[in-house]
C-alpha cells in the first residue's frame, strides 16, 4: 500500500480510538492482520430505532488509492434495512460512492452509517424487498428489523411469534437463515413463505 494511504489509516485508527464515540461504545475499529488494508468496524444500533441494543460488524477494505477513493464497506452482520442488502450486506450510501470526499475519515464513515441506520432512504434502496415493506407496512418492518437485530446482532427484543414461525419452517427441514429471510420477505405470512421455499 502506498505511503499516503498507510499514513492516513494509521492516524484515523488512532482518531477512532481517542474519539468520544468510542468511549460511549457507539463505534470501534479493529485491525485485521497487520497490513492496514483491511479493518473491522463496529457500530452500535442507534437508540430509538429497531437496531437499538445490537452490535453490527463491518468489513472495511482500504484501497491502494485511499483517500482519493472511498473505502469499501460492507455489513458482516445481517441487517434488515432498505439501504443495505439483506443478502450480501452491501451498502447504498452516497458518501461511499460518488459523494466521497478525501477529507472524510473512518470515523465520519462509521458515524454516517449509524445515521443511515437511524434514517433510511427507501427511495434509493439497496434491497427492494425491504424498501417495499418499509413503505407499505412500517410496523411489520420495525418488528422485522428488531427481530433481525435480536437474532444476528445480539439485540434484546425477542419476538416469540416470529421465533415460532421460524421454528415451524426449521422443522420442515429449512435452514434457519433461509427461513428467517423468507418469512421477513413475505411479511411473516407463513403460508406464502413456505410456498416460495418449496416452489
Amino acid at each position: 500500500m502506498n505511503n499516503i494511504a498507510t499514513q492516513r489509516i494509521k492516524r484515523e485508527f488512532k482518531e477512532v480510538i481517542k474519539s468520544e464515540e468510542l468511549a460511549k461504545c457507539s463505534i470501534k475499529v479493529d485491525l485485521v492482520g497487520d497490513s492496514y488494508t483491511e479493518l473491522k468496524g463496529e457500530v452500535a444500533g442507534p437508540p430509538d430505532t429497531p437496531y437499538e441494543g445490537g452490535t453490527f460488524f463491518l468489513e472495511i477494505k482500504v484501497p491502494e488509492t485511499y483517500p482519493f477513493n472511498p473505502p469499501k464497506v460492507r455489513f458482516m452482520t445481517k441487517i434488515w434495512h432498505p439501504n443495505i442488502s439483506s443478502v450480501t450486506g452491501a451498502i447504498c450510501l452516497d458518501i461511499l460512492k460518488d459523494q466521497w470526499a478525501a477529507a472524510m475519515t473512518l470515523r465520519t464513515v462509521l458515524l454516517s452509517l449509524q445515521a443511515l441506520m437511524a434514517a433510511a432512504e427507501p427511495d434509493d434502496p439497496q434491497d427492494a424487498v425491504v424498501a417495499k415493506q418499509y413503505k407499505e407496512f412500517p410496523e411489520i418492518f420495525a418488528k422485522t428489523a428488531s427481530h433481525w437485530t435480536n437474532v444476528y446482532a445480539g439485540g434484546p427484543k425477542k419476538n416469540i411469534e416470529f421465533d415460532s414461525k421460524i421454528q415451524r419452517l426449521i422443522d420442515m427441514g429449512i435452514e434457519r437463515d433461509h427461513a428467517c429471510a423468507a418469512l421477513s420477505s413475505y411479511n411473516w405470512d407463513l403460508e406464502r413463505a413456505t410456498e416460495q421455499l418449496f416452489s
Binding site: I4, Q7, R8, R11, E12, P67, F68, A102, A103
Partner: peptide, 10 residues
C-alpha cells in the same frame, strides 16, 4: 491541527 493537510493528514 490547522497546518495539517486534510487529505494526507501530514
Amino acid at each position: 491541527e490547522e497546518i495539517l493537510c486534510p487529505i494526507c493528514t501530514g
